[in-house]
Amino acid sequence: MRILSVNVGRSFDAEWAGKLGRTAIDKRAVPHRVAVLRNGLAGDERADTPNHGAPSHAVYAYAREDYDWWQGELGRDLRDGRFGENLTTAGLDVNGALVGERWRVGSALLEVTGPRIPCVVFRNWMDEPGWLKRFTRAARPGAYLAVVEPGELGAGDEVEIVSRPETGMTVADAFRARHGDADALARVLAVPGHAPEWDELAARAGRADG
């Protein structure tokens, strides 16, 4: 399990980038090692800080294996960083990671916090028909990570899973549950100590069904 590519990007103006009209989704691979700060990677920007600026969204990881699957689906090449991720991984089941598990990458310690939720900027950036529905249906969202211990990392670094909750929800289950999958929501609700937001989601779903 290793980091295939480290990707950063600067904000730029774009008419298609939602109400803000600005985005930093275009992440590009860098050849050097990068400092990992509390709020993300050095040299990386996030334009939409209200939605993407939280400490729980400091770093975004996506698996090369999922890119390869998407290439088959879309019939086009997808370079590392195309989905806006900071870390492109190889040999790591990012979507099967448990929320709360921790990764040692280089000298930094990162914690999985949840799935990426696709937005209108991502849809417009990809320019694929029905992209949000297709991305949601595939349930290959990649994972957001918080920075527990700052450090530095680079392409080629191994990813060591240093701790993992005894019971927990996977990134994929959290993603599916947020998008109306009743079985996934049941698995999330079975996790001891789950956040109250999941009970609220279940209650809303119950009212809708009723």
Score class of each variant (00 low, 15 high):
67 Y>V: 15
68 D>V: 15
68 D>N: 11
68 D>T: 14
68 D>A: 15
69 W>S: 08
69 W>N: 06
69 W>I: 15
70 W>M: 12
71 Q>E: 15
71 Q>D: 09
71 Q>K: 13
72 G>A: 08
73 E>F: 05
74 L>N: 10
77 D>A: 15
77 D>R: 14
79 R>C: 10
81 G>Q: 09
81 G>I: 13
82 R>T: 15
82 R>K: 15
83 F>A: 10
83 F>C: 06
83 F>G: 06
85 E>A: 09
87 L>I: 11
87 L>Q: 02
88 T>H: 04
88 T>K: 03
89 T>V: 12
89 T>E: 13
90 A>M: 07
90 A>C: 08
91 G>T: 02
91 G>V: 11
92 L>R: 06
93 D>S: 09
93 D>V: 12
93 D>W: 04
94 V>I: 15
94 V>D: 08
95 N>C: 14
98 L>Q: 06
100 G>Y: 05
100 G>D: 10
101 E>C: 14
105 V>H: 00
105 V>S: 00
106 G>Q: 00
106 G>S: 01
107 S>K: 05
108 A>G: 03
108 A>M: 11
110 L>D: 08
112 V>D: 07
115 P>R: 06
117 I>W: 01
119 C>A: 10
123 R>I: 11
127 D>M: 06
128 E>S: 07
128 E>D: 14
129 P>C: 06
130 G>S: 07
133 K>P: 01
134 R>G: 01
135 F>N: 03
136 T>P: 00
139 A>V: 11
140 R>Y: 10
140 R>P: 03
145 L>G: 03
146 A>Y: 00
147 V>T: 07
150 P>L: 05
152 E>K: 02
152 E>S: 09
154 G>Q: 02
154 G>T: 02
154 G>S: 02
155 A>P: 00
155 A>E: 01
156 G>F: 02
158 E>L: 15
158 E>P: 02
159 V>Y: 01
159 V>D: 04
159 V>P: 02
159 V>W: 01
160 E>P: 01
162 V>A: 07
165 P>F: 12
165 P>Y: 07
168 G>E: 06
169 M>A: 15
170 T>G: 06
171 V>H: 00
172 A>D: 08
172 A>P: 01
173 D>C: 07
174 A>E: 12
175 F>S: 08
175 F>W: 06
176 R>F: 08
176 R>S: 09
181 D>E: 14
181 D>L: 13
183 D>Y: 02
183 D>W: 01
183 D>M: 11
